[in-house]
Simulated assay, not measured.
Amino acid sequence: MKIIEDDLSSDATIALIRAHVTELAGHSPEESCHALDLEALRAPGLTFWSVWEDDTIAGCGALKALDETHGEIKSMRTAGTHLRRGVAAKLLDHIIRQARMRGFKRLSLETGTPAVFAPARSLYARFGFETCPPFGSYCEDPYSVFMTKSLDGPGDNAPSKSSCRQAS
């Protein structure tokens, strides 16, 4: 498997992102769904990667800069054809390494509370992410779990202060 920085132009990548957004919308009300669509994934300050096995897309994920020292993992997804084959772990390791190389001191994420998200929460916990209060512009939400990981070794695990805004 290889990981590439992806410009979100291939049919396979577009299909995987669309499937991701559609599926997540089925597990949370609209105001609690924080999945990024194709246009949002092309925004400045965000890098998107896809994982490929030969000519088949196996997964994807993104890193969003929240500020100079804090990044957020977005759009982690494993293709249905590649579930339980280590795609997500390989990609998460890559994103963590990239965040460190960019000088981030903290990496955070938002994922869901329904049972379908349990494997993702378990993966993040295995990589040292711990639950935390909302960060960035997120608000407390019964459909969201917020997790964070310090990237500069042991020390302060408090996430950046939240400036919560209501969904529109």
Score class of each variant (00 low, 15 high):
C132D: 03
V21H: 03
S75M: 03
A25K: 13
A89Y: 10
P134Y: 03
D156E: 08
T148L: 09
T56A: 14
A158C: 14
A158K: 14
A25M: 08
R97C: 13
S160D: 09
H27L: 08
A58V: 01
E130C: 12
P133L: 08
F104E: 04
H34G: 08
A43V: 03
E53H: 15
G155Y: 03
R77D: 04
D152P: 06
E68N: 14
W52T: 05
S108I: 11
R84P: 10
R121G: 05
G80W: 02
E53M: 13
S163H: 13
A25I: 01
P142S: 05
A120D: 01
L8Y: 00
G71F: 01
K64Q: 11
I4A: 15
L66C: 08
V21L: 04
T81S: 12
F135N: 03
E68M: 15
A115Q: 11
S168P: 15
L46R: 15
S28F: 12
K2T: 11
L83T: 07
S168W: 04
A35I: 00
A12Q: 12
K90T: 11
A125E: 09
A158N: 15
G112E: 00
A79K: 04
K161E: 15
L41P: 08
S9M: 14
F104A: 09
R100H: 07
G80L: 06
A125Y: 03
Y138E: 01
C132K: 03
E130M: 13
A99C: 07
R106N: 06
G86P: 07
T69R: 15
S10G: 10
R165F: 06
P154K: 10
R165M: 09
M147I: 04
S168A: 12
S150R: 13
L91A: 05
T111R: 04
M76F: 04
W52I: 06
G112W: 00
R42N: 12
I96Y: 05
S144G: 12
W52K: 09
E30V: 14
V145K: 13
I57N: 07
A58G: 06
Q98K: 12
T113V: 09
E110F: 06
G136L: 02
A89F: 09
I4D: 07
S32P: 11
S163L: 07
E130A: 15
G128Q: 00
S144C: 14
A58D: 02
R102D: 10
D156W: 07
T131D: 08
D67W: 06
P133C: 11
A99T: 00
A43N: 11
